[in-house]
Design a protein around this nucleic acid. Structure first.
Lengths: 245, 245, 245, 245
DNA sequence: CATGAATGAGACTTCATTCAT
DNA sequence: AATGAATGAAGTCTCATTCAT
């Protein structure tokens, strides 16, 4: 991100005066809003400039172009969110506590700015030929790093299962969160995000725990039995009513 | 979907000749590809026409416009996927088998056409004022319906936890799948999707099970079963040797 | 018009079978409706074809193109209207009666088909480079011929003034009629066209009569006097109130 | 009109710089020419831009679109013509003088820009669903207001007949003028518009006068006047010769 | 520094018209 | 005789981007 900043701010025109820095912040803020609301394609530099109250040309004198501005918006946002999680992480807490913290913070932080940014990242991040590609990947790695560390630590202490690749577990954690966030935006129904967060932690934690092989197998056995019995009973019932004689 | 079809074909110019139908199919195919690759905004009617090998005007004589074409692409794709899942679902299988089937099929079907369509739906579906909005919602409901039924059935038979809203469980299931799919596309590393599917099923199933199963009771059940089986087998064996014919 | 018909019907493809003639009539009818409703530019061959219930290609096999069709529509319409006036004109009536008949018929006939055709002629007739130019001029001459004859006759018998070019009198007659027709269409207020016609006849007839030089001059004198008196009185009044002493 | 102006300028991009205003004027001028020549539909933004010597994009940065430009053209033109008539109207003149002034000015002003604008207004004004509809109606009312006032005044002073609705008289006046203007444009023959104007005034005035003036009474009035004048002149003459200094 | 002004490139869309069948 | 199918040409409009002032 630092090299991004340098690139954006230095290659163009403006020395790093304090006024200049404020301008950059204003533009980034407006850009964040507009990109989040409209998505990359539908956002226009005109609207961003207008929200800042400057001319389009000014925007282009601080940023090389729309794409760079978008890249900066995304990276700033990632920075904030990463900092918030890294700073707040209860280092002395249990693995489960740390895990819960991350999930909770993620959901909270995302919803502060609506899910626009989130899906911006997801949609635009996917596009190849988008120049952002590399930096974005780096950011995403940094972003998921805290969770990865927690999970790895959990594996070492036997609290997290080791029979599944970490990458899959990451999907297992972030996937539902994104999904929940989308639903929260789509449905105007104001989901109680705190309640949802706690439930999600519980569900996820259940999935992440080492399989108590016995119990799981037993449960499976019970389920199979149960199914078999039900099917038998249904069949018996059918026969009875079908053949009254 | 049927009214979509009617709307698209016929209102414009071409009666339902056989050649006409083929053209429609060709355009839909090209549209699917391009929309999937580029997303709605970056896709151009020019490129779609060019891939079919016709002029843009031809495309517009079969579909009212870019948006309608996109809507048709999405709905056709949903139709396929829904049909595949509804038709293939093992109705006599256990809840777990059905669940596993859905997850597996989902991952497979999505990857046939790349993740483009998937994220197209997600990105475009999110945008309000997109006119597609309503039909899309309906399709998504139909799409997730099988899973919802399976989960609900599982809850009735005590195999799926009831302490969490179904909606959250849906996010819990589809979220990771989407995430996995994105990773699969992003990283060119060809993940073995079948293996991943099995692992995902296991993780998810663990999350969905009722919490705190009574281990002791389960063990007792198992023992009773075991005993019963053994007795049965012994009896069978005895019979077999008694009646060689 | 006859050469138009020949041109349209012969140069293309269709021999003059009775079926073919019916087709031509149908298309002309639909064309009349659409051109009248939409104006030349906004009318589309597609809509015309659709109203007839044939394909666009069929329309083009009977008429060389949109422009020719429009020309035919206009000329047919002129034919009708001219015939109606020529046939109905009371040859034994007085000049005033004949004049009144023409005005009345004009207003009636125009309103049968709405003012669309009327303004179509006026708008499109004006456009140079419209190919219709020449034929249209000829038609308009034929169209106004009855009126011109009546007026000329009136001049010979001393019932119509001779101090004004016939051309100007034509404008004097047709101008108000067109204006009235436009107002009738614009305002949905259903003007009683018959009453308006009678009033118009009276106004126009007054204008067309030879100036009884004495009377006119006298009237003018009276008006001037009247004005002078009023001004004087106003001035006196002002003075009185201004200078109370 | 003012809200039109505000709407057009400013909402798009350019603040009201001096250069900007000139551009607006240039574009309006070119727009006026092109719309007048071609009519609304056949006019193209490309041609307008080309005549100004700028790119199409520039035109669209000053006006929201073709329609708004056309609306502005029409309203500017109306403004000019209304101002010219309102400013020049001889307020102290007789009713006939005022009437003659309006007719003369109308014909002159219209011909300055050809009849294109005139028929543009008439053709486009007629089209329903044209968005211009409302503003246009208002403008037309303002435009005909001076004439209406003069006629009403004439009615009060007995110089204009009262047995016919004002609306019909308006058609009676504007109708022939439009017709004359069209003929003037169609026929390249350069009509002497001043002569025509005077003749038209005479014809129209004849139509507007109260019917059946009492010739006898008028003659008596004239004789009285005449006698009075003669007496006055004789007296004046006497005085003049009596007091030579 | 900031911006007013301009624009090239390209998007979607419409429609009269042609032609093989 | 009729038409299904296709399209070239053109139109309106949008927007990121540049540059002289």
């Amino acid at each position: 991100m630092d090299e991004l900043k340098a690139e954006a701010n230095g290659t163009r025109r403006h020395p790093a005066g304090p006024k200049s820095q404020q301008r950059v912040r204003d533009i980034l803020q407006a850009g964040r809003d507009v990109f989040a609301e409209k998505g990359y394609e539908r956002a226009t530099t005109a609207e961003i400039a207008q929200r800042v109250g400057v001319s389009e040309a000014t925007v282009f004198s601080y940023f090389r172009g729309k794409r760079e501005l978008c890249a900066r918006v995304i990276s700033e946002w990632y920075d904030e969110i990463i900092a918030a999680i890294e700073d707040g992480l209860p280092r002395d807490g249990s693995v489960r506590q740390q895990f819960a913290f991350i999930v909770r913070m993620h959901l909270r932080l995302m919803l502060i700015h609506g899910t626009g940014l989130c899906s911006l990242v997801l949609s635009e991040g996917r596009t190849k030929q988008h120049a952002l590609g590399d930096e974005l990947t780096a950011l995403q790695r940094r972003y998921t790093a805290p969770l990865m560390r927690v999970l790895a630590h959990g594996q070492q202490t036997g609290q997290v299962r080791t029979d599944v690749p970490l990458r899959l577990m990451r999907s297992m954690v972030f996937g539902p969160m994104e999904h929940v966030l989308w639903e929260a935006t789509l449905a105007h129904r104001s989901t109680d995000i705190e309640v949802t967060a706690e439930r999600l932690v519980e569900l996820l934690w259940a999935a992440l725990q080492p399989p108590a092989p016995d119990v799981a197998a037993l449960a499976r056995l019970r389920d199979d039995m149960s199914e078999a019995m039900r099917r038998y009973e249904a069949a018996a019932q059918a026969k009875k009513s079908a053949i009254p004689i």
